[in-house]
Design a binder for these strands. Structure first.
Length: 414
DNA sequence: TCTGGGGTCCTAGGACCC
DNA sequence: TCTGGGGTCCTAGGACCC
């Protein structure tokens, strides 16, 4: 199989090129910027076509932000200050206070995301969705796909996206998904990079292990501790050694990945496994002192998941909650019902029982509600659920003991 | 002044059935 | 009285990704 990995760059302001810019923090509509321009220069209309004309001074700076957000992405100029994705906005503001901060505008992203994927599917229909701005494409059977090793098709895709949306797009071409993704990183933004199997040692082996999709911070730290820093160093280790030290499954995968081996297909369709809603509070809350607002937030989360399920036509039978405490430790509880539901009240009831099984001795910063074991609302399974083999969990003696003091007050909490 | 929100997949132990 | 495996389902936590 030959695969493309394509990702669009969502920064749409040419006047910000080369400047330190981060996207993150609170959600806001991009229209806010236009609204400010209409105030500043009322003689002009200011529509979405005028984004390029907004003066740089009008953009908010990182140091004007207060709150708990994180950075979603950052330009290279911002990265030079040590700012990067997933970093707290407050920490980023310390490193680079003058950076421009753009709001996260999910409505805009969804719109451009849909368009980007439509355009690609019109050209090459075998597409795997990997989130808002990324896809895999299997172009094995696209007519003309092999010309110049894929470069002609990649250029066509790039040009079609830019003509339609104004967005730039990076594309990696390789024999499989793993390598295609890494290839796309070699030439960003707006680049095309073609990787042949024989390029592995020269182009991939010098890269940090972290560049492999599937090696995260934990695995990387463990590899570093073994003196393995680059993909080449990883490839040099015996498969059996990796399996012994990282588990048979992950170890074998590490070995394959380092050698550029990946047999996964491009998956064009998949069913959701779970849906959830969660929220981090502006300030940490206490189960007893902030009972009222917690109760309201909890109800709203249940209503939101229920609405999501109904809108997309799913029901689920495993209801769960997630708590993150002020020390960032988290806990989850879930419980499987004998029937499928997408009803807000039923979800709230089951989730409320889950909450009672948590020991709330610390303040909490996040609350989430999840519905799993999903099936289509009109499926046979949904209409004729098999009876439960395992009884829904009740508080075990072990769980109940530490809750003794709080249990009474918690009883009617959620 | 740390650390969002929405997901998937894996592991490991226990219950329960055959 | 002691001692089995498999297989499946459920639950909790954690790694990882975008």
């Amino acid at each position: 199989m030959d695969a493309f990995y394509a990702s669009v760059e969502l920064l749409r302001y040419p006047q910000l090129k080369g400047l330190p810019v981060v996207i993150g923090g609170g959600r806001r509509r991009e229209d806010d910027l236009l609204a400010r321009m209409r105030l500043a220069q009322p003689e002009r209309e200011w529509t979405a076509h005028d984004l390029a004309d907004i003066p740089v001074d009008m953009f908010p700076r990182l140091n004007s932000y207060t709150g708990r957000g994180v950075i979603t992405t950052a330009t290279y100029a911002a990265r030079a200050f040590g700012v990067g994705s997933a970093m707290g906005v407050m920490k980023a503001a310390q490193l680079c206070p003058q950076a421009i901060l753009l709001p996260v505008d999910f409505e805009q992203y969804r719109h451009y995301s849909r368009r980007f994927k439509e355009i690609v599917r019109d050209i090459a229909p075998v597409v795997e969705d990997r989130g808002v701005d990324e896809i895999y494409i299997d172009f094995t059977n696209v007519p003309g796909g092999q010309r110049e090793g894929g470069r002609v098709l990649a250029r066509l895709i790039q040009k079609s996206i830019t003509d339609d949306t104004g967005l730039t797009c990076s594309i990696g071409v390789a024999p499989n998904k793993l390598l295609a993704k890494m290839a796309s990183e070699l030439n960003k933004p707006n680049g095309i990079s073609i990787l042949q199997p024989e390029d592995l040692t020269e182009k991939i082996w010098p890269l940090a292990c972290r560049k492999i999709n599937g090696i995260g911070p934990k695995a990387d730290a463990k590899l570093q501790a073994q003196g393995i820093h680059t993909i080449g160093e990883l490839a040099a280790r015996e498969r059996s050694w990796l399996m012994a030290n990282f588990g048979p499954s992950y170890g074998a995968w590490l070995h394959d990945a380092a050698h550029g081996t990946d047999t996964r297909d491009v998956v064009t369709e998949s069913e959701p496994v779970s849906m959830s809603r969660e929220t981090t509070f502006e300030k940490d809350l206490h189960v007893l002192h902030d009972k009222q607002s917690l109760g309201e937030i909890f109800t709203r989360l249940c209503q939101q998941v229920a609405a999501d399920l109904q809108r997309k036509g799913y029901v689920g039978k495993t209801i769960g909650i997630k708590i993150r405490f002020d020390n960032f430790q988290s806990a989850t509880r879930d419980s499987t019902l004998g029937f499928y539901t997408s009803d807000a009240k039923a979800i709230r009831q089951a989730a409320g029982m889950c909450l009672k099984r948590i020991d709330f001795k610390r303040r909490i910063r996040l609350l989430g509600v999840r519905v799993g074991s999903l099936v289509k609302a009109d499926s046979d399974q949904a209409l004729h659920p098999v009876p439960l083999k395992v009884l829904p969990s009740v508080l075990t003696a072990k769980e109940a003991a530490p809750l003794k003091d709080l249990r009474h007050e918690q009883a009617d909490l959620f």
